[in-house]
Every structure is written in structure tokens, then in C-alpha cells.
């Protein structure tokens, strides 16, 4: 096993994994626990992880599974949504948009774990649906279905009902003729 490879990976990627874990779990202490356990599990099978085309995909998969197991073990649906540090330009935001983000953050954590994972991987990690499917171990169609159900759930809240749901990329329009 290339221990130095593992060390380099941990040093380079822990920050990113913590942000992902934090967005999934909603609180800092759980995020730390999830990432620590994820990396130690990855270490146990680092030979296999490092042989994989993308160690990130493999490690993200472990993290997502860890998070889902944690959610199942958690008896209550109590939310631990600690206030995240607001960005420096928060003052420039309208109260309305801040309130919408607060609401969206709370609602995101009421979604089933897989639906939230799809949104986080798609809109924070900027993964393509094919990569998300690989991380979650499901078909691309399932990813799209989970995303659609997540958006439908968010829009059920009256304060978000007027938000437009994202549509699939439309086919290019034919060129205009004069």
C-alpha cells in the first residue's frame, strides 16, 4: 500500500469532503465524524481505492453510504442545522433572499437522504448525472427521478411554490431566418 499516497490524498481532499459531509448532515460534529470514518475505511482498502479510476468517486461513495447509515440510526428527525457563517457580502443580500436560503437549507434537511445527496452532488459538487449515478450505485434515470422528487417536495412549501423548477436543457432552436 502506498501510505504516502494515502497521506497526500487525506491532506488534499479532507477539506472538500468535510464541506460535502456538512451539506449532507447539516452539523459540523457529524460531518467530522463522517469524514474521519470514511477516510479510515478508505485506508483499509486503499489498494483497491487507488486502483480505481477516480479515488474521489470511491471515497464519495463511502461517505454517502456512511451518511445514509447515520441517518437510519438516528431515531428522531430532529434537525441540527447550525447557523453557517454568512458570506461577507451578506449585507448586500435582500432579506427576502436570505430568508429563502434559510428556508431552503431547512427543507433540504427534511428530504430523504438520497434525494438530498443528489442535490448536493449535482449543485454543489457539480457532478454530472452519470457520475452521481456511479456514486450512488443507481441508474441515471433514478438520479433524475430523485432530483425531480426533491424539487417537488421543496415546492410544496408555500413560500417556494412560486419558484420555477429546473427544466431539462431544451433542444437548440433552429437558426432564425430573415
Amino acid at each position: 500500500m502506498a501510505e504516502s499516497d494515502f497521506t497526500r490524498y487525506v491532506e488534499a481532499r479532507t477539506g472538500s469532503l468535510l464541506r460535502l459531509a456538512y451539506l449532507l448532515a447539516g452539523d459540523a460534529h457529524t460531518a467530522e465524524d463522517l469524514v474521519q470514518e470514511t477516510l479510515l475505511r478508505a485506508h483499509r482498502r486503499w489498494d483497491r481505492v487507488s486502483r480505481a479510476g477516480s479515488p474521489d468517486a470511491y471515497v464519495r461513495r463511502i461517505l454517502i453510504n456512511q451518511h445514509q447509515s447515520w441517518r437510519r440510526r438516528r431515531a428522531s428527525t430532529e434537525l441540527a442545522v447550525a447557523p453557517a457563517g454568512l458570506p461577507d457580502d451578506a449585507a448586500a443580500d435582500t432579506q427576502e433572499s436570505l430568508a429563502a436560503r434559510d428556508l431552503a437549507w431547512r427543507l433540504l434537511h427534511e428530504l430523504p437522504a438520497q434525494q438530498r445527496a443528489v442535490l448536493v452532488l449535482r449543485y454543489y459538487e457539480d457532478l454530472r448525472d452519470a457520475d452521481i449515478a456511479d456514486v450512488l450505485g443507481c441508474a441515471q434515470g433514478t438520479v433524475r427521478s430523485l432530483a425531480a422528487r426533491a424539487f417537488a417536495a421543496l415546492r410544496r412549501h408555500p413560500d417556494l411554490a412560486n419558484y420555477a423548477v429546473p427544466l431539462p436543457t431544451p433542444a437548440p432552436l433552429p437558426e432564425e431566418t430573415s
Binding site: A21, A28, P83, A84, R101, Y123, Y124, L160, A164, P166
Partner: peptide, 16 residues
């Protein structure tokens, strides 16, 4: 809604 989700996640990630 997707823009709101993206903005929300970007904001909150700073609390990691």
C-alpha cells in the same frame, strides 16, 4: 429553484 439550491449550498458550505 435550482439557483436557490445552488446558492444555499454555496453559502452554507462556508460553515463546514
Amino acid at each position: 429553484l435550482d439557483a436557490l439550491v445552488r446558492d444555499t449550498l454555496d453559502d452554507r458550505a462556508t460553515g463546514a
